[in-house]
Structure formats: C-alpha cells, structure tokens
Amino acid sequence: MLELRLLQGSLLKKVLESIKDLVTEANFDCSATGFSLQAMDSSHVALVALLLRSEGFEHFRCDRNISMGMKLVNMAMMLKCAGNDDIITIKADDGGDTVTFMFESPNQDKIADFEMKLMNIDSEHLGIPEAEYQAIVRMPSSEFARICKDLSTIGDTVIISVTKEGVKFSTKGDIGTANIVCRQNATVDKPEDAIIIEMKEPVSLTFALRYMNSFTKATPLANIVTISLSSELPVVVEYKIAEMGYIRFYLAPKIEE
C-alpha cells in the first residue's frame, strides 16, 4: 500500500512539466526515503534525477519499496487536471497495475480521482558517485533560462567557461557569434538575485543547447539554479525543490572531432 499526500500539489505538476519532454517513460521509485525517479532521455545524452523526500509530504505511507512505470505525458495530462492550489495524493496497491491521483480542492468541496494504468519499463539505473567539481555557479534560474533561450537563437551548442573573471556562455552559428559574461555579484539586495561562483580551477565545456533549454523548464520550481562543472564529467544543473528535495539534470559534454 502506498499513499503520499502532498499539500503543495503544484510542485508535482511543475515537476512533470519540467521533465515530460525530456523523458518519455520512467519508473517512479517509492521507499522510506521518498518519491524518486532516475531516467535518461531516449538518446542517452541527458539524465534526470528527482527526489521528493518523505518528510516533505503531509502523509507518507509506503509499506514496501515499489517501482511504478509511467508514461510521463500521460501523467502530466492527468496532473494538469489538478488545480494549482489542490492537494494531491498518490495512491497505489502493492502489486497493482494502476496508480490513482486524488485531487482535493483547498476547501474540500471538490474531490477528483484519476486512475492511470502503469506499465513495465525496463530501464537502466546508473550509479552517480559524489564528485568534486572544478567550478560551481549559482545564479537566478530565470537568468540562466534567458541566456539559454537567447543563445539558442544563434547557435546549437554553448561553451560554458568559468574563469576568475566570471562565467561566460558562448555560441556560434551561421549568422554570427554571441558571448554572455556573468560576473560574481554577491552584494545584491535579494539573495536569490546573486551570482556566486566557486572556482577551484578554470573550466570550459561544450554542451548541446537543446538539452539546456529543456532543463530550464524546471525554472518555476526554484529561484536559484546551481551549475556544477568539471572537465571530465557531465554538467549538473540542479533546481532545489523547496524543503522537499531536488531535480538534477546531468548532461554529457560534446568534444572536439
């Protein structure tokens, strides 16, 4: 028996909106730790890892570890039927082949049940070891989204370089080139407006903008995005989900031919 009651149902709606175009189907895993997912995009270039910790749920019952295969567009379609202020409860029976999403309006005058068929998904689970990153950039998530969107009008790839001067996002296309430099600025009025760069060594990596743009669909989940870079590793683009966990996107770099 599984029963997870999330007061802030909009969080789950936003999570699905942020991953449904990147990943078509995935196993959601539920254990005492929480509700989680790890999935790759169909070309195995990017990976998404989601964790919603059990403490973040108003009620969290998970009698045994369970893995539920879902088609994400279908799940997103059902969650779109929940109001932004609704409480969402996820329910499933052990060994069952369906999951139920229950939506309660804030004043309890409307209760809806949506039952969705589960599917068997043979997915590869990857072990991601803790890593030391050469540079970690924290910046407003809206600023990062704007940069990715702007650069993708010029080119297909972005070179992210971190030096003492700041973080530089560059691209090149048929019509020309673009460079956007963001300097550390920790002395702003609001902490969520700050750009903070922790650099151990300069680093420069190239990534496909198509994926970066897809990751920025998680912008509504967090004011701040953290970008961790190391020359031998995929970049990690992390959005913290208020008091509950995180959504992390890993993207393998492109290398010179």
Binding site: S43, H44, E124, L126, G127, T206, A252, P253, K254, I255
Partner: peptide, 14 residues
C-alpha cells in the same frame, strides 16, 4: 559541431 558523448560513458549501471 563536435562529438556528443553519452551519459552512460560516465556513470556505471547499478
């Protein structure tokens, strides 16, 4: 431009 690496080249299957 460039060769796109795969995520599975970096992380092991568990």
């Amino acid at each position: 431009r460039g060769i796109q690496l795969s995520i599975t080249e970096f992380y092991r299957s568990t």
